[in-house]
């Protein structure tokens, strides 16, 4: 698997299974700096949470700490850099993101990773990373990473 490139050039890979999706997250994490925001887009079951496990591994956070935040809305993982793992799946109105303190996460000193960001589109920062994961046949997924600005 190739390393994702820094800068605005999109990088693209095919993951052959959950393990490779975790690896992709770990490789991508090298590009992240405190304060960065990562949008994780993809249908249910594409492996968004597994990708976050990879990012966590890079920052020295045990993978098993990373669990789906669908119900809890936000999980915080302390590591070399604190990760805020948000999940907007349950939100019915974008304003609910403000209720949970979205701005404190986005503009804090940690890295914020957001699943189902389309639910809170009006409140997302203009500059962020976009990770799109799509189903291919069987366990294969395509992962497209680029910087939005």
């Amino acid at each position: 698997m190739s390393q994702p490139a820094a800068g605005k050039q999109p990088s693209y890979f095919i993951s052959k299974g959950v393990g490779e999706t975790v690896q992709a997250g770990e490789a991508f994490a090298q590009l992240l700096k405190p304060g960065d925001v990562v949008l994780l887009e993809g249908e249910m079951g594409t492996g968004k949470t597994h990708f976050v496990k990879g990012v966590a591994r890079y920052f020295g956070i045990p993978e098993e700490e990373v669990q789906s935040p669908t119900f809890s809305l936000v999980h915080e993982y302390p590591g070399r850099c604190v990760l805020y793992h948000l999940d907007c799946y349950r939100m019915q109105r974008p304003e609910e993101a403000l209720e949970i303190g979205l701005e404190e996460y986005l503009y804090g000193s940690g890295i914020t990773l957001i699943e189902w960001p389309e639910k809170i589109a009006p409140y997302l920062p203009p500059v962020c990373w976009s990770v799109e994961i799509r189903h291919l046949k069987g366990e294969r997924r395509e992962i497209l990473i680029h910087q939005k600005s």
Partner: peptide, 23 residues
């Protein structure tokens, strides 16, 4: 022991959604 990914309740909620039920 604990879950490493989805909670059991979340599994019910989301799989039901895949089957076409409301979340």
């Amino acid at each position: 022991g604990q879950t490493r990914d989805d909670a059991a309740g979340e599994a019910f909620d989301k799989i039901g959604k895949l089957l076409g039920l409301d979340y």
